[in-house]
Design a protein around this nucleic acid. Structure first.
Lengths: 221, 221
DNA sequence: ACCTGAACACCGTTCAAGT
DNA sequence: ACCTGAACACCGTTCAAGT
């Protein structure tokens, strides 16, 4: 696995670093200290090397993040999807979500490209295929994929940022401050729900929303 | 409008800076040079002041961003929403989207809090109200709002990041490289669509997706 | 080919002092 | 009360040089 220099001339030293080693170290760092800790400089320190040595193996930080996403997607199990196209569409959407949900650092990558890693492309294929089998045209199927994708990205964004906020939990959230000041005449619905808002918006609605979105998408088939 | 010191003692100088002045300068900077240019240091330079002077008027950069969002939402016109609750729900979702869509720098704020500025809270009120009038329970209405919110955030994230990518358009997108290498036997649907993928995913599906999501939401009412 | 050291051009934020 | 200067603890990336 470890790439070696092709010519082992007398003066050439064996490479101390490799893309693999860098990716592994980055994964360890992410697991141990979270996304904020991952910087080129810190990573170099972790590898007992210098920042510039990394740039010999990855083009820039963006490429490193993409490589990390790729490695993560490759490791994920590829579950059998249901035969029924509707169930298949929902299941694929769920997998898409789950692949990304357990590596929250990925959100920065999400923003940087609108397409998954190659290793996750089978999910997109499954979704477009299922949508077509549900009676959508190929064009509608692509639109359906995009709508589900937007829903997924949004859910992840909000989920991750909430988790980060809870991490440094000292200061009261803007939301709490806002809801305690709600004028009941101007915002009757929100005021009526204000004390339950935190709990109502805390429970996980991803799956339910996914099913809802699919229901809407197939209604036009 | 300009806050003045209450005691104008002989030794007290008139304040050179104010929250208002800082916000205005930040808006100008954002308009002129985009989100990346907005830093506390740069902003101080623009105001012919020092970074630390800013911290006397805003707590930190997060608060500044929140104040900017608030100011933006306040300026937005508040359109009359349709009476019909279903149309009302869609229209409110559209406004929510539009308020955010024309200030792409906001995406960083979106991640940092799950609730809108106070000035945009009327949209949430309208959505929850419309959902209830459509026959949903208050709990379902909150879930409906959240699902639309996720969809909106995701659409904006992807939209903004695509626009940024096009800004520095030198390097070919990861997507293009990926799609040109697609194995037709492994990804039959995507391969069949590969040459049209760019155009199919370029057109704006926000509105259509919004209507679809609402359709799915109301199907269970 | 692979790596290092020093530098460039930045960040957000804190501290201690000035008027 | 309002502001300044200097500093702390970082960033990503480039350049020129070393073996």
């Amino acid at each position: 696995m470890q790439p070696r220099s092709k010519r082992t001339g007398r003066t050439g030293r064996p490479p101390r670093l490799s893309q693999q080693a860098i990716i592994s170290a980055a994964e360890q760092l992410l697991a141990a200290e979270g996304a904020d800790a991952l910087s080129m400089r810190r990573l170099a320190k972790e590898l007992a090397s210098t920042p510039m040595a990394l740039y010999h193996h990855v083009r820039d930080k963006d490429e490193l993040l993409l490589l990390l996403l790729e490695a993560h997607a490759q490791r994920m199990p590829r579950p059998e999807l249901p035969e029924d196209p509707r169930e298949r569409l929902i299941a694929a959407g769920q997998v898409l979500h789950d692949v990304l949900a357990d590596c929250p650092w990925i959100v920065e990558v999400l923003a940087s490209d609108d397409l998954m890693a190659v290793s996750a492309l089978w999910i997109v294929e499954a979704m477009v295929d299922a949508a077509i089998k549900c009676g959508l045209t190929p064009e509608q199927a692509v639109d359906a994929y995009r709508i589900i994708w937007y829903y997924t990205v949004g859910e992840l964004m909000v989920r991750v940022s909430r988790e980060r906020r809870q991490a440094d939990a000292d200061r009261p959230s803007y939301r709490d401050r806002t809801f305690s000041m709600l004028a009941a005449d101007e915002y009757p619905r929100l005021a009526a729900l204000s004390d339950r808002w935190a709990t109502l918006t805390a429970h996980d609605t991803h799956r339910q929303g996914l099913e809802t979105v699919v229901e809407g998408l197939l209604a036009r088939a």
